[in-house]
């Protein structure tokens, strides 16, 4: 059964790597719903947060093929229950739509959104939340005129507690052939 999964890919910071990562999805005809790249808490390690809708078995195979890439340190997948995730949306509305009845301000308040900038002609509203929330705000604002709307890709933090640096240490240990050759019974 298809379900939404978030794939987190931790990589070296290399030119072209985004291409190498996305090929793994596109060659299997998987549509990427959103993708975000940023630094991670470990210096020099970047993370991609990729949202897809697929069945779990396939996602497992994709994750292994991602990890197989030389410059990929580690890849994980999680379903939405295992994540805290957010997206950010920006809306450009005519400033004069805020005048008068106060209806727009009402909407902004009820969504916990905030006004980011006010210009003579336009006002920028920012909202952080899940996609359904930003989508709803968009729907509610639309009758009042939305000049521009943009939403970021998902950023997500996982609930499991193991730290990236511990995974890194494991990978680095295993990257040394001397270690792999001597390793037996769960211990080096």
């Amino acid at each position: 059964m298809k379900k939404q999964y978030t794939v987190s890919v931790f990589t070296e910071n290399k030119i072209g790597l985004l291409n190498r990562v996305s090929i793994i999805f596109t060659r299997r005809h998987i549509n990427i719903q959103s993708i975000t790249a940023s630094e991670s808490e470990v210096q020099g390690i970047h993370r991609y947060t990729i949202v897809i809708e697929e069945n779990e078995i396939l996602v497992q195979k994709v994750v292994k093929q991602l990890e197989k890439q030389v410059d990929v340190v580690k890849a994980f997948y999680h379903d939405n229950d295992q994540l805290i995730h957010q997206e950010i949306a920006l809306f450009k509305v005519p400033t004069n739509s805020l005048a008068g009845s106060g209806e727009v301000e009402q909407i902004i308040r009820s969504f916990n959104a905030r006004i980011l900038a006010v210009h003579q002609d336009f006002t920028i509203i920012e909202q952080t939340g899940h996609k359904n929330e930003t989508q709803q705000l968009f729907a509610d604002l639309q009758p009042h005129g939305v000049l521009e709307f943009v939403r970021s890709g998902r950023v997500a933090i996982t609930k499991p507690m193991k730290e990236l640096k511990d995974y890194l240490a494991e990978v680095e240990f295993a990257s040394d052939l001397q270690n792999t050759k001597n390793y037996t019974n769960g211990k080096a």
Partner: peptide
């Protein structure tokens, strides 16, 4: 080159 830190050429063998 003897090692690339992000690359595991041979996975660790599990005796189990």
């Amino acid at each position: 080159c003897a090692k690339v830190r992000s690359y595991v050429p041979e996975p660790l063998v599990e005796i189990e």
